[in-house]
Design a protein around this nucleic acid. Structure first.
Lengths: 142, 142, 142, 142
DNA sequence: GTGGTCTAGACCACG
DNA sequence: GTGGTCTAGACCACT
């Protein structure tokens, strides 16, 4: 038996004026949700049609985002059932992880700097992203 | 006192995989540079051809960015001389700034997610960085 | 200066009655071409529009195949220029390679058997695939 | 001499990622089994429910395959008893066989390509396999 | 009802 | 001219 949509707490939003393709914004938000812990292995994503309605875009655009996430192994799709966060955890060496973290953070800080954004405000925004809805209910294992 | 070519210190960078059009990234960086005080009235921008070489893109793309900036009154072009930051304070709109912040943060969070990094640890690392930077007390040239 | 289409020797074909999606047949044929050595790093693929005309399908279908190949790192796409076989060579350990070869071949043989196909005829077909056009001109390095 | 349930030895397998619809794969395997002599007139096929469980698919999908086979006269269904290979020799058409060969070989070549294996070495390995098999001189039960 | 494939066609970004 | 994004809508495969 399936329970109601657990990911109801997760809200997708589009900024159509940003120049960033809609499908890419969806991909980013799913991956950001995973990083923030708001989406975890087994969680169901909104159906293609539902998200299309929510975001007022064409279902094909949602489909495309989901397909790309599936190719990358981020989500899994079950015909006629729905779309779920995949169980895969890459699990790399601690050293490698550390290296990657520094690489990402360093590059990001540089970019913020060149955009005239203070790290302080950027960190605040990230915190919001991370903790905003982190206390929402989750589906276990699957 | 400012010299004519001081903006040589200003480095443009593109992320071609971000989904943000190249011309848009150039516009953003010019405006951010002005907002941050790294570009001021009268500073010369790289020539179209130079920037095209630097960024490994087509000169037409640079041209388009410059044209749009000129329309907005941010820069001024002098035939046979070069392109310069205009006298007007363009005052990058708050909305524009907000857009850019969300864009940067969202994309960054997505990368963290796909790298299997939790936002929590990333934020910690950023805080360290911010603290270190603030203790050194000034911005280094770049 | 670009020379004529080097991959002219490579012929794509679709079997629309097979039940296998067109986009997947394209993907398969590109990958098979690489395995057969008929497509090598740097070779240009037909343009999206050209292949669409050749195969009498919609350009979007070709686009989709190319996009998926790009996500997988098999090809690289240059805006306004064309689509090329990527330079990446996975390069794994010899032991791993051997294991994988046996795995693939074993599974394939089993499937042929259960389809009532003799290995002899299957091998013949594979040889045709492999040597058919292997003496066609190639573009160097890129 | 044939017993009623001898087809228990016949194993069906699905490749859900191949893009070939599940029902089609079942049809193909039944017809191939007949062509190969592993399924003969009067042999009983697994019940719809049993096959659905074995292949982890929906019973409706099996049903659809059986229905189509029955329409073609390949099998016969007896209410309350089971499903059996019909008396008629369906004679899988040459075209049909050709299609399946191309399908299998093409897909296999694609996998080899994406695994970075050259067809040449794969063919060698297959030849070895074929030789070994032919020396043992008979097909082992399976 | 859920996801998957495909088409036809508009408009954008880039060379 | 090249590839890229998106829409609207038809039809298929599967639960």
């Amino acid at each position: 038996m399936k329970t109601a949509i657990q990911s109801a707490a997760f809200q997708f939003k589009l900024d159509l004026k940003s120049g960033v393709p809609a499908y890419r914004q969806i991909i980013d938000q799913v991956q950001a949700g995973i990083a923030a812990g708001r989406l975890a292995s087994g969680d169901q994503l909104p159906t293609v049609r539902q998200m299309a309605v929510d975001l007022a875009i064409n279902p094909n655009t949602v489909l495309r985002a989901y397909r790309e996430l599936e190719i990358r192994g981020v989500i899994e799709t079950e015909q006629g059932t729905g779309t779920f966060i995949s169980g895969r955890k890459p699990q790399q060496s601690q050293a490698e992880r550390e290296r990657q973290l520094n690489q990402l953070v360093g590059e990001f800080a540089a970019r913020c700097g060149s955009a005239g954004l203070a790290l302080a405000e950027v960190i605040d925004r990230l915190k919001e992203l991370a903790y905003e809805t982190s206390r929402s209910g989750k589906r276990e294992g699957r």
